[in-house]
Amino acid sequence: MNLKQHSIEKNILSNKIILLSISITIMLVLPTVSNNYIISLLIEILIFSIFAMSLDILIGYTGLPSLGHSAFFGLGSYIIAFLNSTNAIALNVSQNILITLPIVILATGIMSFVIGIIAIRAKGIYFLMITLAFAQMLYSISIRWSSVTGGSDGITGILRPNLVIGSWMLQFDSRISFYYLVVAIFFITIILLNQIVNSPFGNTLQGIKSNQQRMLSLGYNVNWYKTASFVISGVVAGISGMLLAQFYWFTSPENIYWTMSGQALIMVVLGGNATLIGPIIGATLMRLLPNVTSSITIYWQSYMGLILIAVVLYARNGIVGTISKIISKNHE
């Protein structure tokens, strides 16, 4: 039994590595066979995948249903606008991603810590409401405090980063180079998050999702872990927001608005929560579908709604969860 399980785990691990290397290769080769527009779609899909995966940490792995995740997505986009843009608002700290990225991580980390420490005290629907309230508060600030945030006009002129080490410099200005940057960050994120959810810490989070009271009586400082999960997920969301702002050269309050949180939530639910791969599939569908179909039918949002209802009612675990259920059933 013991050995068997061990070998199963090993098997899964090597499968994962193979899968990962295949997908990395595909991602690297893809631009050479596709046009500029496809690359821009891929960039968006990857960025939103990072965003959705970050929410999956909260919803899928910790059981905290946030509807305010756009707060950190938006925050990341605004911080990079302050750090490095041609806009008059900018402080122009640096264009070097080795400097800006840590600042974005730090700032979104602090913010998510402050919001998290308050929000995680609420449970279920109240957690949903309180995260929503925080996000809407930031949204409202972004519109009203226009001398700093540019108000409803948003901030233009956000620059894409470069990477400078000594006299060696990489520029991520062009779409293709920016694509590779996003691919790199995407894979680093997926490897890190995968590591996290499969670590003891990840087990702790899943234990909290499963039975918070039991975790307490086992001696886990549940609030501490929830806050940590909130911060990790906030930081990753912030990074994705930063990337989107750099890709668009623009950020605006829409990035903080609750519909952005809703979009991520749909990606997670549709693709399958607590899978990491599910949110990626969800993000891909959500970003591709309107592109292919919205012109075919302007009712795509209604269809989306119906699909979601079906998923929630009949396939709780989303696309990935349902498929893996079918596969494991066939194995038996």
Binding site: Q195, I196, S199, P200, F201, N203, T204, G219, Y220
Partner: peptide, 11 residues
């Protein structure tokens, strides 16, 4: 994992 105090570790 709580008993061994590794519940917070990511490796």
């Amino acid at each position: 994992q709580q008993q061994y105090d590794i519940g917070y570790k990511i490796t």
